[in-house]
């Protein structure tokens, strides 16, 4: 794995290792593309009925709604974007419910710049969503098999006992923006990747399938475990928000820890590590 040691102009000893295997890099970028389109087409689909509920059905004659995004005409004749989450009403005019330029407002839950296509088109949103859903699921399966074979899963993703014990320290280091570039992922990295890859991704696929009426006939246990089709739809949406949160932190960390080195490791596989840290530092 290890290659040439090179002296940096700042005098620190570094060396370049092969960080990410080919399978890891290919699946990473396939996911990046698939998730981008899944998000934008998912918001397009959501716009067709911008309400989320708990349970098997949508309450029209009763209230089981947890989130709704609507355009509501107020007493003064002005149309407002109103987002209601768990009974709390918020004015979200300009972003959610009502968006677009002042002189040609669009009444839609998520704005045009957050959906594909930009105009309201549920049919095309579904075409895009299911195409990339297949790509996403196939990538997940390939990643799982490859990572079991090449050791990525056991070595880099599943946290060890000492990773968990070292979490408070790892957390404190992240807060102080002190990043040690070592051969292996730190505890916080392992846990966040494990949660995203082994919990969020499978849950996203399963809640998506739970919304399929055909799957409900073939696998009725799906609605059982998620507490109904509409709850599954709500969880699917919630997972989307969690993945956006992960994405924001992920990008922030790449920028903070050295974007060139981090990007190179995910493109060519090569990653420069701090030399002293490879020699069995106490935090391993």
């Amino acid at each position: 794995m290890a290659t040439a040691i090179d002296k940096q102009h700042d005098g620190a000893d570094r060396r370049t290792i092969r960080r990410h295997g080919l399978a890891t890099r290919i699946t990473h970028w396939t996911w990046a593309i698939a998730l981008y389109f899944l998000l934008l087409s998912g918001l397009q689909i959501f716009n067709a009925h911008p309400s989320l509920y708990i349970g098997e059905q949508s309450g029209f004659a009763f209230d089981n709604s947890v989130l709704s995004i609507r355009a509501v005409r107020g007493a003064d004749g002005e149309v407002q974007g109103v987002t209601t989450a768990f009974g709390r009403r918020m004015d979200t005019t300009g972003f959610l419910g009502v968006s677009g330029p002042e002189d040609s407002r669009a009444y839609r839950a998520f704005p045009a710049w957050l959906t594909v296509p930009s105009y309201q088109d549920l049919a095309t949103g579904r075409v895009v969503h299911f195409f990339f859903a297949w790509l996403f699921a196939a990538t997940f399966l390939s990643w799982l098999v490859a990572s079991l074979i090449n050791g990525h899963l056991l070595r880099d993703i599943l946290p060890t006992f000492s990773d968990i014990r070292g979490l408070p320290r790892s957390f404190a280091e992240h807060l102080r923006f002190r990043f040690r570039h070592r051969r292996s992922y730190n505890g916080l990295q392992k846990i966040s990747y494990a949660v995203v890859l082994l919990i969020f991704f499978p849950l996203m696929i399963l809640t998506g399938l739970t919304m399929s009426p055909a799957m409900n006939a073939g696998a009725p246990w799906l609605t059982e475990i998620f507490g109904g089709r509409q709850t599954a739809r709500t969880i699917h949406f919630l997972l989307m928000l969690l993945l956006i949160g992960f994405f924001a932190i992920h990008i922030f960390m790449v920028l903070a820890a050295g974007p060139i080195n981090e990007m190179r490791s995910m493109v060519t596989g090569r990653f420069r590590i701090d030399l002293e840290a490879t020699e069995g530092g106490p935090e391993r």
Partner: peptide, 24 residues
């Protein structure tokens, strides 16, 4: 990669849309 950049590829009958619809 703003969203309206993709509208042309996704209109009815467009090649990209037809190809993606095969997933059905």
């Amino acid at each position: 990669v703003g969203c309206d950049a993709l509208d042309g590829m996704l209109s009815d009958g467009a090649t990209v849309r037809e190809a993606m619809a095969k997933a059905n």
